[in-house]
Amino acid sequence: MDTAEIIVTLAGVGLAGFVIWYFFFSTRQTASAVSTSGGLQQVDITVKGGYSPDVIEVERDKPVQLSFYRDEENSCSEELLIPDFSIRRELPAFKTTLVELLPRQAGTFAFTCGMGMLRGRLIVK
């Protein structure tokens, strides 16, 4: 191997390491729900190339209202799926869609776009 091949190989290994770290080990933005005086837990989520925040913490046995604002026209983000709560919603572009649920048990529950490319987690404590 000459010097150019060694440099290209090291750069490739470095980039692969970065991708693995970013998707599996980097910290994610976590948001705790804000409780209203009526006990409703509310979280605002922006959909633009992903969910922000993408990790949401709520308390069990208290109603949750997730406000999804879709700030794009990308076709991947036009549908929201929360399979553990049997929720499937269309997210119109540049509008807010409210999703209400009542988590009865603690755990981590995934939510995704219709294609499964955009991902988030709802952590019930």
Rank of each mutant, 00 (worst) to 15 (best):
V58M: 08
T30E: 12
E59W: 02
R104D: 13
V19I: 15
L40G: 06
F111P: 06
T27G: 11
Q41L: 12
A93S: 15
G14R: 06
S86T: 07
W21I: 10
I20Q: 03
T30A: 12
I20H: 03
G120D: 01
S77G: 15
V58E: 01
F25N: 08
S67V: 10
R28C: 06
E5H: 10
I6H: 01
S37H: 10
K62Q: 13
G12H: 06
N74H: 11
L102S: 07
I87A: 08
R119K: 15
L10Q: 04
L66D: 01
V64E: 02
M1W: 11
Q29I: 12
G39Q: 09
F94H: 14
G120R: 05
A106E: 13
Y51I: 05
K125S: 12
F18G: 02
S26V: 00
S52N: 11
P53Y: 05
S75I: 14
I7A: 14
N74S: 08
I82S: 04
F85D: 03
Q29H: 08
L122N: 04
D54T: 13
L66H: 07
R70I: 06
S75H: 09
D61K: 15
E57R: 09
P103I: 05
T46D: 05
R60G: 10
T9Q: 15
S75Q: 14
T30P: 00
R89A: 14
I87K: 08
A11I: 11
L10S: 05
V13T: 13
L66G: 01
T36N: 13
T9G: 08
M117H: 07
I20C: 02
R121H: 02
L101V: 11
R104A: 14
V8W: 03
P63D: 07
V19Y: 04
L102F: 14
L80W: 06
Q105I: 06
P83C: 08
A31W: 07
V55M: 05
I6N: 01
G50E: 01
M115D: 06
V99D: 01
G107F: 07
D61F: 03
V8Q: 14
F23K: 10
T9A: 15
S32G: 13
